[in-house]
Amino acid sequence: MNSEKHENLKEIAKNIRIHIVKMIAASGSGHPGGSLSIADIMAFLFFNEMNINPERPDDPDRDRFVLSKGHAAPVLYAVLALKGFFPESDLRTLRNINSHLQGHPHRLDTPGVEASTGSLGQGFSMASGMAIGTRLSGSSSNVFTIIGDGESQEGQIWETAMTAGFRGLSNLCAFLDYNNQQIDGYVSDIKDISPVREKWEAFRWNVIEIDGHNFENIENAISEFKKEEKKPTMIISKTTKGKGVSFMENNLTFHGTAPNDEELRKAIEELENA
């Protein structure tokens, strides 16, 4: 049963990845690496977990998702389009002058985007605020967010880590996209964020470590999050930057560079035959 569900999610993640490389190639700029690395988590959240419905985008009891690492906008746009918030054909307009798909997510432009993000650290605090707000309203909805490992160097991340831990925001579930790369190089070389588990535990979070490309891992982690009643949950997700396209995997160039025509052809071929 589970394996059938996971096969289905694999297929969705494949479509998400194809959309990512296509839209970034079409726009000529964007961030493929960090978008591909969280495609599996995004597929699981949007197609198996979250209570969201494009017909009722303002439902006060909907689950919220905030992409704190806003530069991974392409992966968010891909899932929102596949979910039916807007036509898939809009994806190829990414970053165009007339497009509703900004370089970084903007909630006033794009249906389904809950918060405008891109200045790192702020989405995480906004997600924490949403967890406070929905809890105040007596809603049972959950708030999901993804932060980057480079983003974890922002001081604001730790201000919010302290707030959410102290206030026991058990309706807040964060994923750390731990691919160990940032624009200028390896996170462990630029400013190492380890030890990660110990840091989040010290800030009073429920910490789970997973392989961020393994659906069974993702599923188990989320069910642990739901059982936790006192602490916010941090799911440290070991990921591969550029996952799914061999020449983008762990390749620093593809943090923020669009594939050319030949690279796009190869990428799609690989993804389709995976």
């Binding site: 905030v66 909630r107 809950e114 918060a115 650290g121 702020q122 989405g123 995480f124 605090s125 906004m126 997600a127 924490s128 605020g129 949403m130 967890a131 406070i132 707000g133 105040l136 001081g155 604001q156 201000e159 919010t160 302290m162 707030t163």
Partner: peptide, 12 residues
């Protein structure tokens, strides 16, 4: 910093 972005999140 946390206060301002959290305020925005609560407001949303």
């Amino acid at each position: 910093q946390d206060m301002i972005s959290t305020a925005a999140g609560i407001a949303l």
